[in-house]
């Protein structure tokens, strides 16, 4: 897909994310909107996976470590045909498999996540298996910036470098916010690039809302042969809806009817502007 097509997709995705969060009266709004463009470019450009190839041992793996932003993942998986979108009407309801975190009961989901700091170690295991089996697939994992203080991430980072996992790509959704406060005030992880480099990783920083920049980053994998890759994606929490952007309240805020209507009109406007 070209830039314009991808940008149009992102707007559609953001609208649907909000739709189902409103329907469920629950969800992680801000973080789903910050990673929408990343998921869009992953599933519509980078990942070699489809509903038909989902059981193939050669498929690319995507593990969403920041599992709380499941709404973004579910909306994209539905769009890619992994399941009918109407299933999302049951999001978070009694007995629904479409719960507030990714689970393998939903087709397209690779791993059950939700407790932060689990995605990277599992991705490392997947990537080691690919090397052992001499398969070409890549393994991607998306992490939050607030998630990084979990020690398991850095244990896995060491293993990844030790095993020279250049088939592994971690993406940090660096939206600079978590629940309590800005990440820099809760537990500062900056300078982040230097930390990953010190752990033996190849680092690229991109604007996480620039679909062309994201495409280029994924296309240039591996960044350095023999090193695991990390993309530090600079993003805006709540991206696309002015009153949600950079506002802590929207970590798991659910829009009211009026806020939802306003958000939709803003997103529609951005679509029209993109078309001009």
């Amino acid at each position: 897909m070209n830039k314009q097509q991808l940008e149009k997709k992102s707007v559609e995705y953001r609208k649907k994310i909000l739709k189902y969060i409103v329907k469920a009266n629950a969800g992680h709004t801000g973080g789903s909107l910050s990673c929408t463009d990343i998921l869009n470019v992953l599933y519509n450009h980078a990942l070699n996976v489809s509903p038909q190839t989902f059981t193939s041992p050669d498929r690319d793996r995507y593990i969403q470590s920041k599992g709380h932003c499941v709404e973004a993942l579910f909306v994209v998986l539905a769009d890619k045909g992994f399941f009918p979108e109407e299933n999302l009407e049951t999001l978070c309801q009694y007995k629904s498999h479409y719960i507030g975190h990714p689970t393998r009961k939903v087709k397209g989901v690779e791993q059950n996540t939700g407790a932060l700091g689990h995605g990277l170690p599992i991705a490392v295991g997947n990537a080691i298996a690919a090397k052992l089996d001499k398969r070409d697939y890549k393994v991607y994992t998306l992490m939050g910036d607030g998630e990084l203080p979990e020690g398991s991430n850095w244990e896995a980072a060491l293993t990844a470098a030790h095993y020279k996992l250049d088939n592994l790509c971690a993406i940090v959704d660096k939206n600079t916010l978590q629940i309590t406060a800005p990440t820099a005030e809760v537990c500062n992880t900056d300078p982040l690039d230097e930390k990953w480099k010190a752990f033996g990783w190849a680092v690229k920083e991109v604007d996480g809302h620039d679909v062309d920049a994201l495409k280029a980053a994924f296309d240039s994998l591996p960044f350095e042969p023999g090193k695991p890759n990390v993309i530090i994606a600079h993003t805006v929490k709540g991206k696309g809806v002015s009153f949600m952007e950079n506002n802590l309240k929207w970590h798991h805020g659910v829009p009211s009817k009026d806020e939802y209507a306003l958000a939709l009109s803003e997103l529609d406007n951005s679509l029209q502007q993109a078309a001009i």
């Binding site: 607030g146 979990e150 537990c187």
Partner: peptide, 30 residues
Amino acid sequence: TSDSRGSGKLVPFGKKFPEQIVEVGIAEQN
């Protein structure tokens, strides 16, 4: 706390007693 003061209803505690709250970030073992 570990980015947990909101769910722990400790936001007012943190405001009143900033010297008596230690925030470690999302890191429960720590």
